[in-house]
Write a protein that binds this DNA or RNA. Structure first.
Lengths: 230, 230
DNA sequence: GGTAGAGGATTGTTGAACAATCCTTCAAGG
DNA sequence: CCTTGAAGGATTGTTCAACAATCCTCTACC
């Protein structure tokens, strides 16, 4: 009983993070959620007041987010939420195609870690039934994160996480989440079926098809919107 | 003449960076060069004095380097140069295998951007002739960065840059750069020959072989050293 | 040898200050 | 009316000092 209590206290210690890191996480979440417009400037004064922190702490948090490509830091002009261009989208999908298809295509037997892939499909099915299209999109991203996680590489996981975060910025440009995310659930189910049989090659082909369709849809959405500022 | 002068002035403006960014770059370079030992703590006071900057500026610079995985930031204990473990090495090579082989393996015709690959091989040949083994290692890394650059993806380039930076930390554990880097020049020359013929599949196979050998050599070097602290 | 406490060093955060830069507005000149 | 230049205000980048919190080391005691 005593040992169990002591370990729980240790677990709380593991979660200690600095204020700067907490603020970075808050901002990251808000940016991904779309609380800020692409291109919007994050004025230090406003955020300092909103979060009751010091400017220096905020500046540290901004620096933490720089590498995540969610912010752009412009000397003497401030920090802006990234605006993705069509070229960004193309590059993101080029990288996804390379990463995800390499992972999936290398599978020759039913992989051990399918539970998360399955959970993401289940999550998507539930979201679809309940007509919650944003959550469907989130489940789709979980699906792809889980695909990459089949490689068992912490670095690949982090790369994919970053790619997905950037893609979130792009998705906010799309004004119809149902139209954008709904068609892919069936594809995910087929990819999962291939993986269950250990047919990575077939799964990678379906995945590549999906990526091409999704990329084109996103690029079309971009073309029908006003060009981003900056 | 006037327009030319004006543009040159603009070019100087493009290079403006903040002190925090400059400091981050200085630290990054020093870390990669091996000026600090793996596991070494970067005491704020010492660096502040050495570089004549303020603590807050240094902290911003540290935050910029966190994501690069060159530093580890430990709450209330300070900032440390990363120590790579054998698992890190395995993951780095897993990612390299995935990235580099996907890029190279997709080549079916002689690619347009071979000049940088060729330059890296030339650089390696010169370094070998002059017996400069560290430079040979650098040329080898340039070779692999140039391979990845064949994909024409800014994000992939940056990922590869980061992987190479991390690998630099691992290489400092190896105490014989000649023994480690020298055998790979010939392999690079063969990979280049395949690429000149547009045979990406053959190149990818040679590349995969190289990665396996290099990984095992590095892991062997790790096993014969004292375990890193932390 | 193990534990507890004290003291010093260091980190994390805050806030004030100032210099530099940018942006907006206004006025003057062509 | 348009362009240019200057002034003023807002904001950013950096510095400095201060303080609280935490960690680490050392010493003393059991």
């Amino acid at each position: 009983m005593n040992a169990s209590l002591s370990l729980e206290a240790d677990r709380a210690l593991l979660g200690r993070t600095s204020t700067a890191e907490k603020v970075a996480e808050i901002l990251r979440t808000r940016i991904i959620e779309g609380a800020f417009q692409p291109g919007e400037r994050l004025a230090e004064d406003k955020i300092v007041k909103a979060l009751s922190i010091s400017r220096n702490t905020l500046r540290e948090a901004f620096r933490l987010l720089t590498h995540a490509r969610l912010l752009t830091h412009e000397m003497n002009r401030g920090v802006f939420v990234r605006s993705l261009t069509a070229d960004d989208v193309r590059d993101l999908y080029r990288v996804r195609r390379m990463l995800e298809c390499a992972v999936v295509g290398a599978i020759t037997t039913p992989p051990a870690g399918l539970a998360q892939v399955e959970a993401a499909v289940t999550e998507g099915e539930r979201a679809e039934r309940e007509g919650r299209w944003r959550e469907l999109g989130t489940a789709n991203m979980h699906f792809h994160q889980a695909l990459t996680a089949l490689a068992g590489s912490p670095r690949l996981d982090e790369m994919m996480q970053q790619i997905i975060a950037e893609l979130r910025l792009a998705f906010h440009v799309m004004n119809d989440p149902k139209r954008f995310h709904a068609p892919y659930l069936g594809r995910n189910q087929h990819i999962l079926a291939d993986l269950r049989e250990g047919d990575g090659s077939a799964a990678a082909e379906k995945l590549s098809d999906y990526l091409t369709v999704a990329e084109n849809q996103l690029l079309t959405g971009f073309a029908t919107r006003t060009p981003p500022t900056g």
